[in-house]
Simulated assay, not measured.
Amino acid sequence: MADTAVPQKGMVVPLAAFVAGAVVALLLGVFGKVHDPTLDATTTLGFDDVRDMKVVVSVAIGVLAVGQVVGALWMYGKLGIKAPSWLGTAHRLSGTLALLLAVFVGYHCIWAFGFQTGTTAHGYEVPLRGVVHEVLACAVFGAVVVKVMAVRSRRAPGWFLPVAGGLLFSLLVVVVLTSAGWYLDEKGWPS
Score class of each variant (00 low, 15 high):
Val173Gln: 02
Thr119Tyr: 05
Val163Tyr: 12
Ala72Phe: 00
Val175Pro: 03
Trp111Thr: 13
Gly77Met: 05
Ser94Val: 08
Asp49Phe: 09
Ala150Asp: 05
Val135Leu: 14
Ser58Phe: 01
Gly88Met: 10
Arg152Lys: 14
Val59Ser: 04
Gly88Lys: 10
Ala164Pro: 03
His91Glu: 07
Cys109Ala: 13
Val144Thr: 10
Ile110Gly: 11
Ile81Asp: 09
Lys54Glu: 11
Ser153His: 09
Ala137Lys: 09
Tyr107Phe: 15
Leu172Lys: 07
Thr117Gly: 08
Arg154Pro: 12
Leu161Trp: 12
Lys147Ser: 14
Gly142Met: 14
Ile110Arg: 12
His133Lys: 08
Ser85Cys: 03
Phe104Lys: 00
Gly166His: 06
Val63Thr: 04
Arg129Gln: 13
Trp111Arg: 13
Met75Gly: 02
Leu100Glu: 04
Val146Gly: 02
Phe160Ala: 10
Val163Asn: 05
Tyr107Met: 10
Gly106Asp: 09
Pro127Asn: 05
Ala164Glu: 07
Arg129Glu: 10
Leu168Trp: 14
Arg129Ser: 11
Ala72Glu: 07
Val59Gln: 01
Thr120Met: 03
Gln116Phe: 03
Val140Asp: 12
Gly166Tyr: 06
Val174Arg: 02
Leu128Ser: 13
Ala156Trp: 13
Leu79Glu: 08
Ser153Trp: 10
Val173His: 02
Gly165Phe: 03
His133Tyr: 06
Gly80Cys: 08
Phe113His: 13
Val56Trp: 02
Lys82Gly: 10
Val175Gln: 10
Gly142Cys: 10
Thr96Ser: 06
Leu168Thr: 15
Arg152Asp: 07
Leu171Cys: 11
Ser170Gly: 15
Asp49Glu: 11
Gly88Trp: 03
Gly77Phe: 05
Lys147Asn: 15
Ala143Arg: 06
Phe47Glu: 00
Gly62Lys: 02
Leu87Asp: 06
